[in-house]
Amino acid sequence: MLYIKCPHCGMRSQNEFSYGGDASVKRPELNKEISDQEWDNFVYNRKSLRGKHWELWQHLSGCRQWIKVQRDTATHEIFNTLKAEEEIN
């Protein structure tokens, strides 16, 4: 069982959250020439490495806010959580 510290509600069990994937993926900016490769990187291609991983979770059975979580994909240790609008350093 993971315990995730929601920046709005505090420490809650994994059962209250739903996963939203890699948080480092950025949608290409609009009103700009966008190559197929950029779209591919946004829609399909992922790093998905072993180790620290920034990812999106939604506190679905809580405050329903989307948050960013930095977790180790091998040990599941959680290092940091941010509100959705906060930038990853």
Partner: peptide, 16 residues
């Protein structure tokens, strides 16, 4: 796969 792809500077439509 992604670990080896990283060593080859490839990004793949794969998640582990």
């Amino acid at each position: 796969t992604n670990i080896l792809a990283e060593k080859l500077n490839m990004r793949l439509p794969i998640e582990t």
